[in-house]
Amino acid sequence: MIMNVFANRWGKLGAEILILAFIFLFVQYFITVGVFNQYHQIIITSLCINIILAVSLNLINGFTGQLSLGHAGFMAVGAYVSVVLTKFMGMPFLVGLVGGCLAAAAAGFVIGVPTLRLKGDYLAIATLGFGEIIRVILQNIEYVGGPAGIVGIPKMTTWGWLFAGVVITIATIQNLINSSYGRAIISVREDEIASEVMGINITSYKVLAFVIGAFFAGLAGGLYAHYFYIIKPETFNFLKSFDVLVMVVLGGLGSTTGAVIAAAFITLLSAALQAFPAIRMIIYALILILLMIYRPQGLMGNKELSVKILGKIWSGKNDAA
């Protein structure tokens, strides 16, 4: 019955917009009437930012197969540039966000072009190094506060911005993956040499994925900065990159739904463990190890959660993921 509605392409788009609008209004209503208090709102914010980070890193690590450990660096660029634009130059939030994204994308381009020739662990070290270089440079720029960072950033990130950010990130990356570019990107992951023989310029596709990933990391940075009041270089160190990597691998490399689920899982787990200050990190570590042992391909493997699979789960054929 429902499938019939979806069969019509326009009907489907309409239904999607309807559902998105419903979710948006639903949460907005809860926030307005106060069912979601400040604590819940902070968790929702972290959750959305982590989703953007995980989905964008998944494009680089999961779909393109390039091990990048510098995602926090791009987030930092986005955060700092957007704050400079809004707080120091008085530009509107949207301009700040877009500026931050573009700056992060530019950083991604500058870093990606030389380093993406490297493979595997050598690329990992190079990206990790660049992430740290970005952080050290920020630490030494007096204009943005050095190690103390920028304090008193006006709170502009609202549920609406976060929601839009998540939807745009996922929609862009999903559509990219399903386009001919996406097929080329995935072919690079599967077999670089074969792709090259097929006439795919592997370097330019790697750089494309890297730049788009960096762009959205910048978006996450801009949203983060305008919610959490203070940014400082330490926030964006290599351990932050690892956190994002954990979400991507936990979700399943090359699965956008997986990245979303894992980002949500890690955020909520971290929040739930706050009540156990003494052992939170031990429990977190154990969960991480156990999940990887029992599900090394990640929660979703490289599959996506979709209506079809849900239907299969529903009818008892549990071969979905």
Binding site: F242, L245, V246, V249, I282, A285, L288, I289, M292, G298
Partner: peptide, 11 residues
Amino acid sequence: AALITAIGVSL
């Protein structure tokens, strides 16, 4: 995947 386990062991 093993790398993530290593991060877990490290923590």
